[in-house]
Nucleic acid binder design. Structure first.
Lengths: 210, 210
DNA sequence: AATAAAATAGACTGATCGGTCTGTTTTTGA
DNA sequence: TCAAAAACAGACCGATCAGTCTATTTTATT
């Protein structure tokens, strides 16, 4: 296949995302980003204008990873909504196992910036809301009785998996998280799905019957 | 009661812990710590020698908070081991609700330092191991069938709660985490405790009977 | 009250930061 | 092929960083 040459923006984004997560945002100087990207100093400023704007662009790429999972990868799976939720943890495991996984740039950025800073919290929070919304759609599809509560539990478990994987440098955190997610799913009562299981009684499915 | 005057070490520790978590470690200059602590510049260096040593001392205070919970607060509760595990999440909720809660200094420090840095990862990791060990003791006390797995699940949920509370600035994360913890406890089979329930059958308690 | 030790304010240093600017080389498109 | 645009290397700037130092004031001990 064609060896597509990376654009300057791509080279900067890849190097910045990697370094911001591996070494921290404040601890990463622009000089180091430029060395790793193999790009001239002035190019960073003609393309992004500032280190801060480059960070915002890295936020974009990280959010797009999540959107790709929810909007393209998971819908293509031929399985039940419940299994689609669990498949998310398999995607997490592949992410954690990458040699350049060093945590989530949103979480890390919030951790190392002024907590009442407008722009970091607002941008990271807005992306987080969009990701949680997609998770909630998956949960609603599954027919859970209390989708908001289940979404919050799963979101918390996902964030716990990310942080545990970062501090332990072990992708097994995704597997633990998947098992914990199975537990909370098992404990949630499901309403019968309108498309499948239409012959069963109207009584909710309890955890004993799963 | 006596108005105990804070020592210079205490004033520096309190200000540093607060600022390291609220604004980030790299983003916090020593000048700002000194202003907030109301202490002279030279005093920081006579007492701690460097900003890095001050961070290590902050690690100590954060670890002592956890040790106090596990070694003093929880053992005093007159309740079942299972309820003691859940009481941990009530302690988390009180922590999150404090007006100067801005995340866990261990997690935040790992997030914003070089991931293969020896000292940050080693110190934070060693404290984490000690905390997880105490959690495992609680789990073993509860008589769970697979204490290692349960400990990992609960540890992951706790870290998820901390990060969720940090990014959402909402102590409700502890409540969600407690409910999730109840779910994983419910799904874990318990062996009969040797001290209580000695009259029951040898069959393990399943989740239906809880 | 006198003296020694500790804490104070704040100037200072060398290094590094994000960002700008200059001049040269490479790429691109007609 | 040739001119315009883009990317290049690297010097440079003002600000800020952690840490040192001096000189003064406060505290503690006798």
């Amino acid at each position: 296949m064609k060896e597509a040459r990376k654009s300057i923006e791509e080279k900067l984004l890849l190097a910045a995302r990697r370094l911001f997560c591996r070494a921290g945002i404040h601890a990463t100087g622009v000089t180091r980003i430029l060395e790793e990207a193999g790009v001239a100093r002035a190019s960073l400023y003609t393309h992004y204008g500032s280190k801060e704007n480059l960070l915002k662009a890295v936020f974009d790429t990280e959010a797009n990873m999540w959107f790709h999972w929810f909007d393209l990868d998971l819908p293509h799976l031929k399985c039940s909504p419940r299994e689609r939720i669990l498949a998310l943890f398999d995607l997490l495991e592949k992410w954690f196992a990458k040699e350049d996984f060093f945590g989530c740039v949103f979480i890390n950025a919030v951790a190392e910036h002024e907590k009442d800073s407008r722009w970091v919290k607002d941008i990271a929070g807005a992306y987080r809301d969009q990701i949680i919304d997609r998770l909630r759609s998956l949960v609603v599809e599954s027919g859970a009785r209390d989708p908001d509560m289940l979404t919050q539990k799963l979101g918390l478990i996902i964030e716990g998996a990310i942080v545990t994987a970062m501090v332990t440098q072990n992708s097994q955190a995704a597997y633990i998280a998947r098992l914990a997610a199975e537990d909370v799913l098992r404990c949630m009562e499901y309403a019968p799905s309108p498309t499948e299981n239409s012959a069963s009684s109207a009584a909710p499915v309890t955890m004993e019957s799963i």
